[in-house]
Design a protein around this nucleic acid. Sequence first.
DNA 1: AATGAATGAGGATTCATTCAT
DNA 2: GATGAATGAATCCTCATTCAT
Lengths: 195, 195, 195, 195
Amino acid sequence: MPRLGMEPIRRAALVKATIAEIGRLGSLDVTVSQIARRAGVSAALAHHYFGDKETLLLAAMRHTLSAYGAEVRAGLAAANGNRERLEAIVGAGFSEMNFCRDTIATWLNFYVLAQRSEEAMRLLRVYRHRLRSNLLHELTPLLGEKPKAEAGAEGVAAMIDGIYLHEALHEAPPNPGAACAQVLGYLDLLIGDAA
Amino acid sequence: MPRLGMEPIRRAALVKATIAEIGRLGSLDVTVSQIARRAGVSAALAHHYFGDKETLLLAAMRHTLSAYGAEVRAGLAAANGNRERLEAIVGAGFSEMNFCRDTIATWLNFYVLAQRSEEAMRLLRVYRHRLRSNLLHELTPLLGEKPKAEAGAEGVAAMIDGIYLHEALHEAPPNPGAACAQVLGYLDLLIGDAA
Amino acid sequence: MPRLGMEPIRRAALVKATIAEIGRLGSLDVTVSQIARRAGVSAALAHHYFGDKETLLLAAMRHTLSAYGAEVRAGLAAANGNRERLEAIVGAGFSEMNFCRDTIATWLNFYVLAQRSEEAMRLLRVYRHRLRSNLLHELTPLLGEKPKAEAGAEGVAAMIDGIYLHEALHEAPPNPGAACAQVLGYLDLLIGDAA
Amino acid sequence: MPRLGMEPIRRAALVKATIAEIGRLGSLDVTVSQIARRAGVSAALAHHYFGDKETLLLAAMRHTLSAYGAEVRAGLAAANGNRERLEAIVGAGFSEMNFCRDTIATWLNFYVLAQRSEEAMRLLRVYRHRLRSNLLHELTPLLGEKPKAEAGAEGVAAMIDGIYLHEALHEAPPNPGAACAQVLGYLDLLIGDAA
DNA sequence: AATGAATGAGGATTCATTCAT
DNA sequence: GATGAATGAATCCTCATTCAT
């Protein structure tokens, strides 16, 4: 029985279901039907709201990215000093919510989607740019030299994503603490070296 | 015009074409027909030799992995001392042949394949294990402590894979030199720190 | 123009078309497309409703078997006395509706299907069991001895199926009357002998 | 290494393999490759000798039919008197060699083949005609009246084929003795009734 | 607002068959 | 005499997508 104002509810449910199904299958080859079923609606409704599958995938991507972004911002707001803010940036990527099987598989598949979709590529580049930019902002005062800070930001960003990738091969559930420690260790080296 | 002994030739051509097509489309959703066409044969022949698409994908994966492995071994054989051998290990991953669009896209998609195929997962874990093990072997004498060496190996491995992942977002062609320098910079920090 | 409640209509049409096509080609090697075309729908719809070809074949089998069963029951309900009921049982198998080219070809192919499909085998065994059981129920009082009645039921059942098989070789259209008479003649011998 | 005079050997092996494979799968949907493999030759050779699959199937049919015919003739030659000869005719159909799973499945599928192939239909009609004719020849003197003898021959033939058909549903291995006894019981009724 | 109905397009896979050696 | 090489032509099945209700 259709009620009014269902649109945002349905959209959110479908986006959530999309991420869950990509996580479950570990692939973009989820069918719209599977997604719709998990969201408790018909496949036709998914098309009604999103037009086509690609748009739904992109919406899922935007959702994941902006959730991550919000987490970073929240972390930054609560942190004091460069070092603490760096920890917040890194920590956001390894929070319980983000560093789980589903999300990891989803990220991985966004990279695949980006090979095919301009918009997905754009979104991922925005993410990457923000991450670097955030890191750079905190690293520059600590490292002094701009080139050094840039290389450091680059390196930290790469390590974070590499850890995600490695996690996609793990049998055991992800260990956010260890992952975080690994990156912070690298940060210490960078900073310590400069100090 | 059928000649004898075509099997190894066709198999090799199909494997190569598989990698090329995955690279071209950036996805495992290449059709057997596309692959076969590029290899200059019919889709039926691909099935004749490989049985099914998954097996062909796995063959492509094995090929890529063993090509990489060979490059590492060759580099190690030519290197003297721990530091040089570390450079060889890192360098193999960023050689002209490996660090190109096609191969990067292929790697990325192998990770996706691994989410669905036991065998792909196994192969990727073997690769990861060898990489770490190689790094650990050289790092241990340099870093002294075992835990430190292990964390270092882990970190370097993560950074290498992260750089690959980031490269999948680049518009410009990959820059092996910069990539290599980035990792070696991290290595210097690790070693310098221990020294 | 999609209307609601089409499912049972489509299912029935597809089942009917399946039987007709098996009858036309005399083989299970009918394509889903042929069946669908005859039912006036797309092949995709056949898969939508039945999942796969085998399930559709089994549905056709169930339909044929249960139509036959209904005819037997109707005949039995209208008959009085053992002899009349035996005639009803035999007659059901040779009714205009059942003893026609299509149905005969379909039965024949169900036996083939049973060699490959557990469920088809089960269905056919149920049919055979009911036929024997029905015959036995009427023959026992007439023949007195249980073993004699069992052998008789077996024999009559075999003859009915044998006549079907022979009919599959006929150029002329089936002759229900003659077929029926043949079996009833055997019944008379059995009963007369016992009397 | 090709030797001379291989043709009859290969042909026989292929025919035998055809029957065995039809028996194994219970269907005409055996592939030429399967047949050839079982015969220990390449699929190309099967085509070399038989031209196409249908011809090979027909050859298998002819082989089965003529083996059966030979068995009948041998039985008839060794028998004395009408009754004994009737037993011989019936017995041939239920000999160990003929009344086994493979052969039963093969016969069944020949009926299917006949729905599609003129030649197969012709062969099966020849078989049926001979069977009836043989039975008629022995029954006529015993039953006196021609119409009675014809009906009897028809009935016996039907029962034989019906028992074959029922056997295709058995889990237990075929029981030639019981099958034979069933038909002979019918014969006794026919004859006793006339005497 | 929501869905059942329906399909076209496409893809993996199979297989009889041909051909050069 | 025999086969490996190769393919075209199917066939089953899937799925995104559309449409009328």
